[in-house]
Design a protein around this nucleic acid. Structure first.
Lengths: 346, 346
DNA sequence: CCATTCGCTGACAACGTTGTACGTTTTAAA
DNA sequence: TTTAAAACGTACAACGTTGTCAGCGAATGG
C-alpha cells in the first residue's frame, strides 16, 4: 500500500514510525528516539532518520503516544453558550494558561441543556482530558460523581457546584451588588429597582441578595415590586419599568443583573423618554459614549479563567489540598460625570 | 493494584475493559460488544456486564479506540485571538455544526504569531484531528503543504490562503465597502474618509479596495489624505480626523474598517465636538442607542463559521471536488433616521 | 590479553480498544 | 432424530507508540 505523502489519489495513509524505520533501515525504537530527541543515537543515524522523516512527511501520532504515556495534555471547557462575551474572555484566558502548560483546549457548549452538559462531560472524560473547567448550567451535576471518583480534576467557574466538593472560581457577586446599591443609596435613592433576567440563576440570585442586603443595612425597605426578573426580554422590561414608574412611590434608580438587562433597560428608558440613574452589572463597549455614560460593576472574566485554569493545572500536577472557592472582586466604574449621583427627580 | 473507582487515596487507575471482563467473568470482546451496543450478546450477560460497568465506574478510553478506528471525531480551529466578538461567533457556529457531526472542537490561539500558528497546526495534526479551520494570521502558510499533502482537510475562514489551493469562506468585503461608499456618495458626499486599523490585513485591504473602486465608479477622486490606517489607536484616529477636517476640501463622511475603528472614531467625534455621517464595518451592541444611531455594514460571522464547518465535514466525508471560495454577503443597516443621508455641513 | 564499561541499536511487550476468525451451544427446520 | 443455521462466546492480532531489556562492537582498564 502507498503510505507516502503526496502522490496518488484518495486519502493517502500517513506514514508511521514503522515506515520511517523501514525506509531508513533502522529499528522502530531508533526512530522513536530521534523523534523524541532522546540520547543514544549516533549523529549520522540521527541525520539519516530525520531525512527520511522529512521525505515521508512523517508526523508522530499523539493518540498512540497517549495510549502509552497516559496523559493527553488536553483540558476541557464546558459552558452554555460559546458566543457570550463573558465566555469569550474566559476561553481566551483558559486557552492561554493551557498553552503555557503545553495543553490544548477542547470546548463544548450545552445550550443550557443538562443532558448535553452530561454528554459533554462524558465525551471529554472518554477522551481522557487531564482536567475539566465547567461553567455549569444548573445547580446540580448528578453525573459528576463518577468523574470525580475516577480522579478527574474539575474546576467550576462563574457558578459553583452546590452538591459536590469541587474547586470554584467566582465573581463576588454579592459584594458587587452591595457596592452598586450602597452607591445609589448614598446619593439619596430609596426606590432602587433591580432588573434581572433569570431569578433562579446563581449569579443573579447572589446579586439580588447583595442588593437586598445592602438595602436593609441602610434601613431602606426591600420592595418586591421593584424587582423585575424577566429582563432578558425588552418588552417585559419596558412593561416593568412603566409599572415601577407608576407606583405610589415610584422607582428613582436601577441596577441591572447583566449587560443584556442593561441594554434592555436602556431601550426602555428611551421608550418612556426618561433616563434613571443606573448601575449595570458587566461593563460593555461604548458605555462611556452613551449620554449619559453608564456606570457599571465590572467583572473580570479573563482573571476568572486565568485563576481557574492555574488552579486546575495545580490539581493535575497532584495538588490534593481541600477544594477551595475563590471569589474575585468587582470594580465600580463611575461614568456620566456624576449622573449616578444626581438627586432624585433631576 | 486497585483499579476500582472511589476508595483509597492517590489518583485511582480508571477501570479498563479487561477489568470489567474479569469481574463479570466474560471475555474482553463481550464487554466491547456491550459497550458499543453491538448485537451478539444475550440479555442476561448484557445486563451483568452493564452492572459491572456501573460498579467499576468504567468509561471507554476513546484514545485507544481512535488508535483502532482511525478517526478522532474532532476538528481544530486556529485563530489569532479567541476573545474577539467576531471569533466568538465563529466558534459558536463551528462548535454547533461540529456537534451535529458528533465531533468535538479543539481551539488554539496564535496571538498573531506565525510561528505559534505553525505550532498549533502541527499539534492539531499530531492529535489526528479530522479537519482544520483556520482564520490565518498572515498571507502565507509555508508550513501547510505537509498537512495538505497528508490529506488533512483544511478550510480557511475570514481570510484566504494566497498560496495554497484550499477552501475558504469569506465575507464579501469588497462588495460591503462598495455598498457603504455608494450610499454615502448617493447622499452627495465626495470627501469620504476610510479609517482602517491595519492596511496590510486582507479584510482591510479588500474593504479599502472596494471603497476606492466605488469612488472611482462615481467619478469621485480617491485621496490618500482621507485614508487613516492606524485607527486601532484612538490617539492616532483623533489626529487623523483633525487633519482631515482641516484640509482645503475637508472630510464630510466616514467609513470605518471594523468595530474597533468605529469606537475610536466615535470617541474622536466626541473629542472634536462634531459628528460626521458614518458607516461602520461590523454591527455592535447599542449602535441604535447612540445619538445619532450608527449605520453599519453587518457581517455574519456565525454564518461564516457554519458554512465553513459544513464544508469541512463534506471534505472529511470524502468530497474531493476542487477547492472553492465562498463569499457571504453583507447587509447595510441604516440607523439614525437618515443621519447618514444628511446633506453636507448640516 | 581478558574483563569491564560504554555507546549505540534492536527485539519485544505493553497501553486499551476493536475486527476477524473460530469455537460452542441453542434453536428451527427437515 | 438429524442437520443446518443462528446465536452466543472466546482467543488473538492489530492500531502506533514508548519502556525495558538485551545484544553488539569498540574503547577502556587492569
Amino acid at each position: 500500500m502507498n503510505r507516502s505523502s503526496s502522490h496518488s489519489g484518495g486519502r493517502p495513509q500517513p506514514a508511521t514510525m514503522k515506515d520511517v524505520a523501514r525506509v531508513a533501515g533502522v529499528a522502530l525504537k531508533t526512530v522513536s528516539r530521534v523523534v523524541n530527541d532522546e540520547p543514544g543515537v549516533s549523529p549520522p543515524v540521527r541525520k539519516k532518520v530525520k531525512a527520511v522523516i522529512a521525505e515521508l512527511g512523517y508526523r508522530r501520532n499523539d493518540n498512540a503516544r497517549v495510549l502509552r504515556i497516559g496523559t493527553t495534555h488536553s483540558i476541557g471547557f464546558i459552558c452554555e453558550d460559546l458566543g457570550e462575551p463573558f465566555v469569550s474572555q474566559l476561553i481566551r484566558a483558559i486557552e492561554s494558561v493551557s498553552i503555557e502548560n503545553s495543553s490544548m483546549l477542547i470546548v463544548a457548549a450545552t445550550g443550557g441543556d443538562l443532558e448535553r452538559e452530561q454528554e459533554a462531560v462524558r465525551a471529554l472524560a472518554s477522551r481522557q482530558v487531564d482536567g475539566l473547567i465547567i461553567a455549569p448550567t444548573a445547580h446540580e451535576q448528578p453525573y459528576l460523581g463518577r468523574e470525580l471518583g475516577n480522579g478527574l480534576p474539575v474546576v467550576f467557574v462563574d457558578r459553583p457546584s452546590l452538591h459536590h466538593q469541587v474547586d470554584a472560581v467566582l465573581t463576588d457577586n454579592h459584594a458587587g451588588a452591595q457596592m452598586a446599591t450602597r452607591q445609589l443609596l448614598q446619593y439619596g435613592h430609596r426606590r432602587i429597582a433591580f432588573f434581572s433576567n433569570a431569578d433562579q440563576l446563581f449569579t443573579q440570585v447572589e446579586r439580588i441578595d447583595g442588593y437586598r442586603q445592602a438595602l436593609s443595612a441602610e434601613g431602606a425597605p426591600f420592595d418586591e415590586a421593584l424587582v423585575c426578573s424577566a429582563s432578558g426580554n425588552p418588552g417585559a422590561t419596558l412593561a416593568s419599568l412603566q409599572k415601577m414608574l407608576a407606583l405610589a412611590e415610584p422607582v428613582t434608580a436601577a441596577i441591572t443583573g447583566d449587560s443584556l438587562c442593561t441594554y434592555a433597560l436602556l431601550r426602555a428608558f428611551k421608550a418612556v423618554g426618561r433616563h434613571l440613574p443606573l448601575i449595570g452589572f458587566d461593563d460593555f463597549p461604548l458605555a462611556d459614549l452613551l449620554e449619559p455614560g453608564i456606570s457599571v460593576i465590572e467583572q473580570n472574566p479573563f482573571d476568572i479563567g486565568r485563576v481557574a485554569t492555574q488552579l486546575l493545572f495545580r490539581r493535575i500536577a497532584g495538588d490534593t489540598s481541600p477544594p477551595q472557592t475563590i471569589k474575585l472582586g468587582t470594580r465600580l466604574i463611575q461614568r456620566g460625570s456624576g449622573e449616578v449621583g444626581l438627586p432624585i427627580n433631576s
